[in-house]
Design a protein around this nucleic acid. Structure first.
Length: 889
RNA sequence: GGGCGCGUAGCUCAGUUGGUUAGAGCGCACGGUUCACAUCCGUGAGGUCACAGGUUCGAGUCCUGUCGCGCCCACCA
C-alpha cells in the first residue's frame, strides 16, 4: 500500500504523481483486476480491442482505455463479475512493414534474411512491445485482467485461426480461386477491398482509335484513363442496344501496337452515354472488364509482374513501371496516330491503405471467404435489434456494408501472420486443410507436403478475438462463462474491418453474437481538428500528459470532451481544467478530513450511514446527492458518459462546494452536535460522490476515499451507490434561500459594497415561509455576509426606508439599509430594470395562458408552470411598483 | 454517384421521447490576502441555436429545401 493510502490527512495540493505512485500495483496485488469469485454474480465482459504491437500508445488508445475502464469499474462496483480482457494484435502488413523498414536501415530486405530469420527478427521486435503497451495502459489505470493478456500470434488464438479456416473450408465457405484482386506492387501482396482507399486523382481520359478489321474506313474509338492496359485488351465492348455500333458486333478490331485481332462484343454493362459508348476490355486489369470477360468468354491477358512492372506481354514496354509504361504507350500511340482526343479527367484511384502506393487490379490465385452465407445472419442480428449500436446511426452504416459485400480475399503474400493452414501433397496433389500446426505427410498417399506460402489477412484472426481469447477451440470454463461479451467499444474507423467480422464469425462459430452492444467512439484530433500523425508532429503523447496532469485528468478530459461517435479536438487546456476539478474535489475532501478528525462518523458495512439531521441545508444536499446518484446511473446505462461526468462536476463544484460546504461552516462553529451532523453529512456525501466519480478518475478518488471515514479496503470494490428518495420540500426551500443569497450578493456587488463588509438586512417572509428562513438564518448571514446581530426576520410585507435597497427572491424580500452606499437614482434604475423584467415575464405568461390551444392541449403540468410564473411575476411587480413609489419614481 | 455527421456564446462542446427567460468549461470584464482550494472565491457581459419555408397551442429539438465544413461507401471506362 502506498504511503498516501495510510494517511488520514491529505497533502495540501493535489499532486497526481504522488497520488498515482504505487497505487496500480497495490490494486493489482489485491487481485482487484481479476473477475470476482462469486459464482452468482452476473458477468460483465469487455474484450479489449487489441492495440497493434507496432508502436507506442497514442491519445486514441487513452480514450478507449478511459471509456472501457469506466464501464468496467462501474460494473465491478455494481456487483458484476467484471472481466476486461486485454490483448495485442500482430498487425499483419503494418507489423511486417515496421520491421522491414528497420531492416532497410541496415541495407537489408526480408529476402536477404529468408523467412525464418526474418520472423525471428519480427518476434524479437514485437515481444517487448507487448509489455510496453501493458505498462502504458497501467499508467492510465486500466483495470484489466493481465493474467489473461492475449496476443493474436499466441498458440491458442493461432489454433483458433486454423480451426475456423478448416471449418469454413469444409463447409465450402472458403475457396481458392483465380480472381481479380487488388494488388499492392510495393507490399507485393493481395489486399482486401477494405485495405484499398479510393482517392480522387486528376488524370486524363484518352480516346484511342482501334481500326475495324476488314473495313478500312471504319474505326472504333474507345475511352480510357489507363492507356497502358490496352496491351492486355482482349475485346472492345459496346451496349447491345447501341445503334451506332450494332453492325460491328461480332467483327474484330486490330489492336494497335500489339497488332492483335480482338472481337467487338456486346454487354449491358456498357454505358452508352459515357465517352464514345465503346469500351476497351482488359479482363486481367479491371474489375468491370473482368466481369465482361467472363460473360463473353474472353481470354484475360496479364501484363504485369508482381512488382508493378510490365511483363513479357508488354512487348517493347516490358520491365517498365506502370507510370513509365503509360507515358511510353501514349507516346507510341501518338506516333501511330491512334489518339483521337485527350481530356482532363478526375477519377477515383485505389491506394494501398498501408503504404499509399497505387493499387493495381490483377488476376491472381488467392483464398477467399464466401460472404453471403455469413452476412445473412449478421444482417438479421442488427435488424432484429439483438445487436445494437451506440450511436444508433452506425447500424445503418453497418447494414449498408453487410448488404453489399464481395467475397473477402484473405490470403496475403507476406511472412508475418498466420500461415494458411493448407498443405499440398507433392506426389498426389491432394490438398490438406488442418487445424494442426504441422502436417508431416499427405494423409492420402503419405507423400511429402508443402504448406501454402501465404499468410492470412490480419483481420481474420482479429475477427475471432471474442472467443479465441477465451481458450476456444478448447471448451474452457472461460469460454462457457465469458462468451458472449457485453460491449464492444471501439473506433468507428474499424467498424467494417473488425466489428462486422467479429459479428459474422461469432455467429458462425459460436452460434451467438459476440456482444450485444457496439459502442463507437470518435477520433481524437489535435487542437485545430487535424488528425494526429507522427509525420505532422501533432501527436499528444499520453504518457507525457499523465506525467504532467495525471492519468485521472487525462481520462476525465477525454471522456467529458465529446459524445459517442463524435470526433473531438483535444486541447491541453481541457486536461488542465480536468486537473483543476480534481484539485477542487481534493481540497473539499481535505477540508472534510479536518472535521472528521474532530468528530466521529457513524459507519456501517456500506460506509458512512445516511445522515438524519434536520438542518435544511443537510436535508437539501442529501436529497440532491440522491438525485445525482440516480441521474448518474441512468446516464451511464444510456452510455451518456460525457453527461454523467459533467453532471458530477456540476454537483460537486457548484452544489457541494459552493453552497453546502460554505453554508456548513457556520455550524462548525456551533455546538458539538451541529458539528457532528455536518461531519456525518459530509462523510456520506463525499463517500457517495467519490464512488460515482471513481470510474472517471480512479487514482485520485482512491486516495481521497482512503482519507475519509469508509468501510472496506478499496473504493474500487466499494458498492455502486443506490439512490434513495428525494426530499422535494428541502430542495425547494433551500433553493429559495440560495436565490435570496444570490440576489443579495448581486446588489452588494452592483452597489459596490466591499466584499468583506458585513451589512445589515431585514428579511420579510410570508407566514408560510417564516420558519424556513429562520432556520436558515445563520447560513444566510454567512453566505450573504449579513451580520448575525444585524439581521431581522419578520413576517408580512416589507417595510423600507427610501434609502434602503430592496431585493425580492420568490416570496422572500430582503431590505438592506445601504444608506450612503447607494444613490437614489441608481437604485431607482435598478428597480425599474427589475420591474421591466417582471413585466415581461408576466406578459409572456399571460400570452401563454391566454392561448386556448395551449390550455386545451398542453399537459396540465406545463400549464401549471405558467400559472405559477404568472403569480410570481405579479407578486414581484406589486412589490417593485410599491418600492418605486417609495423612491419617488 | 449514394450515405452519414457537423454548423448553438470569442473558443471547445452539452442540450435522448417538442414545453419556463437555451446551458457548462475555457476566455473576457469588475471585485476579492473569508482559517479546503489563486489549480481559488464573488458578480457580470456575451447567443436572431447556419439560412429559408413547413407541421404544431408551442420548434435548437420534427419535416422539406438551400448554403458551408468534414467523413464514409462506390468496379462508369
Amino acid at each position: 500500500m502506498t504511503d498516501l493510502l495510510k494517511a488520514t490527512e491529505l497533502p495540501s495540493a493535489f499532486d497526481p504523481v504522488t497520488v498515482e505512485a504505487g497505487m496500480y500495483d497495490w490494486w493489482d496485488k489485491q487481485g482487484y483486476f481479476r473477475p470476482c469469485d462469486d459464482p452468482d454474480a452476473e458477468p460483465f465482459i469487455i474484450i479489449m480491442p487489441p492495440p497493434n504491437v507496432t508502436g507506442e500508445l497514442h491519445v486514441g488508445h487513452a480514450l478507449f482505455v478511459s471509456l472501457q475502464d469506466l464501464m468496467i469499474r462501474w460494473h465491478r462496483m455494481g456487483g458484476f463479475n467484471a472481466l476486461w480482457l486485454p490483448g495485442a494484435d500482430h498487425a499483419g502488413i503494418a507489423g511486417q512493414w515496421v520491421v522491414e523498414k528497420l531492416l532497410a536501415t541496415e541495407g537489408l530486405t526480408r529476402h536477404d534474411l529468408g523467412r525464418e530469420k526474418f520472423l525471428e527478427r519480427v518476434w524479437a521486435y514485437m515481444d517487448p512491445m507487448r509489455w510496453r503497451i501493458r505498462e502504458q495502459m497501467m499508467i492510465l489505470g486500466a483495470s484489466c485482467d493481465w493474467t489473461r493478456l492475449a496476443f493474436t500470434m499466441d498458440p491458442g488464438p493461432s489454433r483458433a485461426v486454423r480451426k475456423v479456416f478448416k471449418h469454413l473450408y469444409d463447409k465450402g465457405l472458403i475457396y481458392r480461386g483465380s480472381r481479380l484482386i487488388s494488388w499492392c506492387p510495393r507490399c507485393m501482396t493481395a489486399l482486401s477491398d477494405l485495405e484499398v482507399v479510393h482517392k480522387d486523382v486528376s488524370g486524363h481520359l484518352w480516346q484511342l482509335a482501334y481500326p475495324v478489321e476488314g473495313d478500312p474506313d471504319r474505326e472504333i474509338v474507345v475511352a480510357t484513363t489507363r492507356p497502358e492496359t490496352m496491351l492486355g485488351d482482349t475485346a472492345v465492348a459496346v451496349h447491345p442496344d447501341d445503334e451506332r455500333y450494332a453492325d460491328l458486333i461480332g467483327k474484330n478490331v486490330r489492336l494497335p501496337i500489339v497488332d492483335r485481332l480482338i472481337p467487338i462484343v456486346a454487354d449491358d454493362a456498357v454505358d452508352m452515354s459515357f465517352g464514345t459508348g465503346a469500351v476497351k476490355v482488359t479482363p486481367a486489369h479491371d474489375p468491370n472488364d473482368f466481369e465482361i470477360g467472363r460473360r463473353c468468354n474472353l481470354p484475360a491477358i496479364n501484363i504485369m509482374n508482381p512488382n508493378g512492372t510490365l511483363n513479357a506481354e508488354g512487348g517493347p514496354f516490358e520491365g517498365m513501371t506502370i507510370p513509365a509504361a503509360r507515358a511510353a504507350v501514349v507516346a507510341r500511340l501518338d506516333q501511330d496516330g491512334v489518339i483521337r482526343g485527350i481530356a482532363e479527367h478526375s477519377h477515383p484511384v485505389g491506394h494501398c491503405e498501408r503504404c499509399g502506393t497505387v493499387v493495381e487490379p490483377l488476376i491472381s490465385e488467392q483464398w477467399f471467404v464466401k460472404m453471403d452465407p455469413l452476412a445473412t445472419p449478421a444482417i438479421e442480428a442488427a435488424k432484429d435489434g439483438s445487436l445494437t449500436f451506440v450511436p444508433d446511426r452506425f447500424k445503418g452504416v453497418y447494414l449498408n456494408w453487410m448488404e453489399n459485400l464481395h467475397d473477402w480475399c484473405i490470403s496475403r503474400q507476406l511472412w508475418w501472420g498466420h500461415r494458411i493452414p493448407v498443405w499440398y501433397c507433392q506426389s498426389c496433389s491432394h490438398l490438406t486443410v488442418s487445424e494442426e500446426e504441422v502436417v508431416a505427410a499427405c494423409p492420402e498417399c503419405g507423400g511429402a507436403v508443402l504448406q501454402d506460402e501465404d499468410v492470412l489477412d490480419t483481420w481474420f484472426s482479429s475477427g475471432l478475438w471474442p472467443f479465441s481469447t477465451l481458450g476456444w477451440p478448447e471448451q474452457t470454463d472461460d469460454l462457457a462463462r465469458y462468451y458472449p461479451s457485453d460491449v464492444m467499444e471501439t473506433g468507428y474507423e474499424i467498424l467494417f474491418f473488425w466489428v462486422a467480422r467479429m459479428v459474422f464469425f461469432g455467429l458462425e462459430m459460436q452460434g451467438e453474437l459476440p456482444f450485444h452492444t457496439v459502442y463507437m467512439h470518435g477520433t481524437v484530433r489535435d487542437a485545430v481538428g487535424a488528425k494526429m500523425s507522427k509525420t505532422k508532429g501533432n501527436v499528444l503523447d499520453p504518457t507525457e500528459l499523465t506525467a504532467t496532469y495525471g492519468a485521472d485528468a487525462l481520462r476525465y478530459a477525454l471522456v467529458t470532451q465529446s459524445g459517442p461517435g463524435q470526433d473531438s479536438k483535444l486541447q491541453v487546456g481541457q486536461i488542465e481544467t480536468a486537473r483543476n476539478f480534481i484539485n477542487k474535489v481534493w481540497n473539499a475532501t481535505r477540508f472534510a478530513t479536518r472535521i472528521f478528525s474532530e468528530t466521529t462518523v457513524d459507519l456501517d458495512e456500506n460506509g458512512p450511514v445516511v445522515p438524519t439531521g434536520d438542518a435544511l441545508v443537510d436535508r437539501w444536499i442529501v436529497s440532491r446527492m440522491n438525485a445525482v446518484i440516480a441521474e448518474t446511473s441512468s446516464l451511464l446505462e444510456g452510455y451518456q458518459f460525457l453527461e454523467a461526468g459533467r453532471g458530477l462536476r456540476e454537483f460537486i463544484w457548484s452544489e457541494l462546494c459552493d453552497w453546502y460546504i460554505e453554508a456548513a461552516k457556520v455550524r462548525l462553529r456551533g455546538t458539538a452536535e451541529e458539528k457532528q451532523q455536518v461531519a456525518q453529512t459530509l462523510a456520506w456525501v463525499l463517500d457517495r460522490s467519490l464512488r460515482l466519480l471513481h470510474p472517471f478518475m480512479p487514482f485520485a478518488t482512491e486516495s481521497m476515499w482512503q482519507a475519509i471515514p469508509h468501510t472496506g479496503d478499496s473504493i474500487m470494490i466499494a458498492s455502486w451507490p443506490e439512490a434513495s428518495e428525494r426530499d422535494p420540500i428541502a430542495e425547494r426551500d433551500w433553493e429559495r434561500i440560495m436565490e435570496l443569497v444570490s440576489r443579495v450578493r448581486n446588489v452588494r456587488t452592483e452597489s459596490n459594497v466591499e466584499p468583506g463588509r458585513w451589512i445589515a438586512a431585514s428579511i420579510y417572509a410570508p407566514a408560510r415561509s417564516l420558519a424556513v428562513v429562520e432556520s436558515a438564518q445563520r447560513e444566510i448571514g454567512m453566505l450573504a455576509r449579513i451580520g448575525d446581530d444585524q439581521m431581522k426576520i419578520s413576517a408580512g410585507d416589507a417595510n423600507a426606508e427610501q434609502s434602503d435597497v430592496v431585493v425580492a427572491a420568490g416570496d422572500l424580500v430582503a431590505v438592506l439599509p445601504l444608506s450612503g452606499l447607494v444613490d437614489l437614482v441608481a437604485e431607482r434604475e435598478r428597480i425599474s430594470k427589475e420591474l421591466d423584467e417582471a413585466l415581461a415575464e408576466r406578459g409572456r405568461a399571460e400570452i401563454q395562458l391566454g392561448n386556448e390551444g395551449f390550455i386545451a392541449r398542453a399537459p396540465e403540468k406545463v400549464v401549471q408552470v405558467q400559472r405559477d410564473r404568472l403569480t410570481g411575476a405579479q407578486e414581484r411587480i406589486a412589490l417593485l411598483e410599491r418600492r418605486l413609489k417609495e423612491l419617488g419614481g
